[in-house]
Simulated scan of single mutants.
Amino acid sequence: MAKPDNRADNVAHLQQHVQNTEQNLHEAQQYLDEHADEISATELNDIQVKNEHRKESLQKFRSEIQDEANQ
């Protein structure tokens, strides 16, 4: 039998995702700042792309939090 759709804790879960994503973004940026002269162009590009995806995810999470809070 399928579980009922319990949305009561969606905002809390989304906020946890926001915190985790912000932490990953910060740590990646800190790594870039500390090791800029040691990393390859490929690694630099990979981290920058991931950080852009993280920023997009943060916007989506925050939008979804607002939607959930308004319901």
Rank of each mutant, 00 (worst) to 15 (best):
M1A: 09
M1L: 10
A2S: 07
A2E: 11
A2G: 05
A2H: 07
A2T: 07
K3A: 12
K3N: 10
D5S: 13
D5E: 13
D5H: 09
N6D: 11
N6C: 05
A8G: 10
A8P: 01
A8V: 05
A8M: 08
N10C: 07
N10A: 15
V11F: 01
A12N: 03
Q16V: 02
H17S: 12
H17T: 04
V18H: 02
N20V: 08
N20R: 14
N20L: 13
T21P: 00
T21H: 01
E22F: 00
Q23F: 09
Q23K: 15
L25P: 01
L25Y: 10
L25D: 05
H26A: 14
H26W: 08
E27D: 14
E27Q: 14
E27Y: 03
E27I: 03
E27W: 04
A28I: 00
A28V: 01
Q29A: 09
Q30N: 11
Q30L: 06
Q30F: 06
L32A: 05
L32W: 01
D33W: 01
E34F: 05
E34Y: 06
E34V: 04
H35S: 05
H35V: 10
A36P: 00
A36C: 05
A36Y: 06
A36S: 08
D37W: 07
D37P: 11
D37V: 13
D37G: 06
D37K: 15
E38C: 11
E38Q: 15
I39G: 00
S40W: 02
S40T: 02
A41G: 04
T42Q: 14
L44C: 01
N45Q: 13
N45Y: 07
D46S: 10
I47K: 02
Q48V: 03
V49Y: 05
V49N: 09
K50S: 12
N51L: 04
N51W: 06
E52N: 15
E52W: 02
R54P: 04
K55C: 02
E56F: 04
S57G: 11
Q59N: 08
Q59M: 11
K60M: 09
K60E: 09
F61D: 00
F61W: 02
R62G: 05
R62C: 02
S63D: 15
S63W: 14
E64W: 11
I65C: 00
I65E: 00
I65L: 01
I65G: 02
Q66A: 09
Q66G: 11
Q66E: 11
Q66Y: 10
D67S: 14
D67L: 15
E68K: 09
E68Q: 12
A69C: 03
A69K: 15
N70Y: 01
N70R: 14
